[in-house]
Design a protein around this nucleic acid. Structure first.
Lengths: 191, 191
DNA sequence: GTCTATACGAGGATAGAC
DNA sequence: GTCTATCCTCGTATAGAC
């Protein structure tokens, strides 16, 4: 087996949450999609809270690895930022949001443990973006006005918001591209 | 009576949806808060879809009126934009998001009729912001790089995203203020 | 308009057989 | 590990009395 049942559950659950949200997905949905019974899921994840927690933890790790890959594969800061945005664009194809963007909307109905995990995700994203911006400013590839920390936070907010709004647009990906194009206009002096 | 039962239902439902989301609020929640029975709500709104539809319609109208008030009470475009942002900041005090920002996250689980209404809301917001930006650019109060339409869309995405992320911050309002401060830095040449 | 009572399905969760 | 069977709660919604 290349993927255990637990992995399959997480995979399906992630798609469901990113698409519908935490409140609107159920064990029955997962069971139906992977061809087992609801009760079997409880063997792997005793409660919905436990499942959600594992979900966000894995998502954080996977996302951080993706960011590391970007850093290693690409040298140019603007191109790195492009790839970052591409991660967000990718979800829209399947009508999915960033897992933590979705969960942030639902934050008040989440178990405390999951809330913390979501907060940590945003902290990591902002830190990574801040470092990226600092590299880009140092090499004269980015032009920013406030602190790199503030700029990073605003950047993340903009990308998350763009994904949220693109969802409601007739052509989600085109709308997202349009927003990102405008975002880079402000950030990159050259083009 | 200054407010009918139907109005009370909408008021409470709006708070609930903006706080928890569409999937996570119920007739029971509303009934408990206004002191009637679940069944009574069905007299005013036959189904959840009908209630949600009325909710978003009313929200759109109220929001548009708020925007008109801003235009009439304030002449300066940057100050108008500040007030626009203040509307979004206001929700955070009660851990509430923009109704349509929340619903956009949940878009795929909403009845089609409600989805349309959400789309229309964003269209109206963008149009208003575009006009605002054009006034500001004409009077040299704003400095933008792309088209006013693109800038307006990005602005809305940023404000919605800022609200989404501020929710997960330790001090939501402080975080929102920080993001908005940085946003104005880019937009206003003077200060 | 609001109530009680109820239908009916879906939700998360558990016990125990295999 | 997965199954069947079951529990209990909550969800939307309806019928009919007041």
């Amino acid at each position: 087996m290349t993927s255990s049942t637990a992995q399959k559950i997480l995979d399906v659950a992630q798609d469901l949450v990113r698409n519908r949200g935490y409140s609107a997905f159920s064990y029955a949905d997962i069971a139906a999609q992977i061809g087992i019974r609801k009760a079997s899921i409880h063997y792997h994840f005793a409660s919905k809270e436990e499942l959600a927690l594992a979900l966000v933890r894995r998502y954080r790790m996977t996302f951080l690895q993706a960011l590391q890959s970007i850093e290693q594969a690409i040298a140019d800061p603007p191109a790195q930022l492009q790839e970052f945005c591409a991660l967000y664009r990718g979800g829209l194809i399947h009508q999915q949001m960033c897992l933590c963007g979705m969960l942030s909307a639902e934050l008040v109905v989440l178990p405390q443990s999951v809330q913390s995990e979501v907060r940590d995700f945003f902290g990591e994203m902002t830190a990574w973006l801040q470092a990226l911006l600092e590299r880009g400013v140092a090499s004269d590839r980015f032009q920013i006005r406030g602190s790199a920390a503030d700029e990073a936070a605003l950047l993340l907010a903009t990308v998350q918001g763009a994904q949220l709004l693109a969802r409601a647009a007739a052509d989600s990906e085109a709308e997202f591209d349009r927003l990102m194009h405008r975002l880079f206009l402000a950030l990159c002096p050259g083009g």
